[in-house]
């Protein structure tokens, strides 16, 4: 392949259709589920979509080993169980897992650092697919590189499976600060900015002009409470992924619903306070600082 692939402009799989799907998820909560039963609980609690995966990040962390795309039977059973969109994870660079997920009819593929990477040099060429992709990012350059490869949605990475929100905070603040920095620049400074961000100049210029990413930005990785979700929204996230935080907690249905409410009313402390009552135990957390460097998922992908 010598020419860069681009999306069609009519019919299915257009850029507008792919990015538009993410626009419709805004203000919502996407929940990790590993069974059809969990998917139904999530839908019932008001999730805008569910993420089907084999093991939640907290278990991947605890059990170790190579983590891969889920069993197609399991994904089918989740698609069958709910009417909201179903997302599923493929390993970074594993374009065949992505092909399989597209063939199963999932609504969004997450090329995810939570699974063990399949390629340590290249991410998936996401333009080659009809199904849209969401990718993680820790900073603006990484987000723009994923968008260049065809990602139609970005989520800040955070540190999945920890219940520690600090990395999600760092990534959201970094993205916001880098976008603000571009906004303050003169047009002739954007060439060097693009070089420093290791991202294409046209995307850098677009961000400088609009003050936002060209695709929807969600947050992920370590969100465990309604207040965590509300803080991420106040920091500029357009929606929230919750992984282990729900089904590793004492009362998943109630916590899921509370996080949905807190996401909508993220700027109203009275609502966040009210929904935070009586939720039972939150997931047992791990401090990101206690995780040895090679086991930090956010550092996968580049």
């Amino acid at each position: 392949m010598t020419e860069q692939q681009t999306a069609p402009t009519s019919g299915t799989g257009t850029t507008r259709v792919k990015r538009g799907m993410a626009e419709m998820l805004k203000g919502g909560v996407i929940m990790d589920v590993v069974t059809a039963e969990q998917a139904r609980i999530a839908e019932d609690a008001g999730a805008v979509a569910v993420m089907a995966l084999e093991r939640v990040p907290a278990d991947i962390r605890a059990q170790g080993g190579v983590s891969r795309m889920s069993d197609p039977d399991m994904i089918d059973s989740i698609i069958e169980a709910v009417s909201v969109p179903v997302m599923a994870k493929a390993r970074i660079g594993h374009f065949v897992e992505a092909q399989v997920l597209q063939s199963l009819g999932v609504d969004y593929v997450d090329e995810s650092e939570v699974l063990t990477p399949a390629d340590y040099a290249n991410h998936i060429d996401k333009w080659a697919f009809t199904v849209p992709f969401v990718c993680g990012a820790t900073n603006l350059g990484e987000a723009l590189r994923r968008i260049t490869e065809g990602a139609a949605m970005i989520r800040s990475k955070g540190e999945a499976g920890t219940g520690d929100v600090s990395n999600a905070t760092t990534h959201m603040r970094t993205l916001r600060a880098e976008i603000n920095r571009l906004r303050s620049m003169e047009p002739d400074e954007l060439y060097v900015a693009a070089k420093e961000l290791q991202a294409p100049h046209d995307l850098v210029r677009e961000v400088a002009e609009t003050g936002k990413l060209p695709v929807v930005l969600f947050t992920a990785g370590g969100i465990a409470t309604p207040a965590d979700a509300a803080m991420m929204m106040q920091l500029g996230a357009e929606g929230v992924f919750v992984g282990s935080g729900i089904f590793k907690s004492g009362n998943p249905a109630q916590r899921a619903e509370a996080i949905v409410k807190a996401t909508t009313f993220h700027d109203d402390p009275d609502v966040v306070a009210k929904v935070s009552r009586g939720l039972g135990e939150a997931m047992v957390g791990i401090n990101v600082d206690d995780i040895p460097q090679p086991h930090r998922l956010a550092e996968r992908g580049w």
Partner: peptide, 15 residues
Amino acid sequence: PGGESTTMDKLVRVF
């Protein structure tokens, strides 16, 4: 607006 109708239904009832 556009969005997820099940979520909107849930939230307009809850609030």
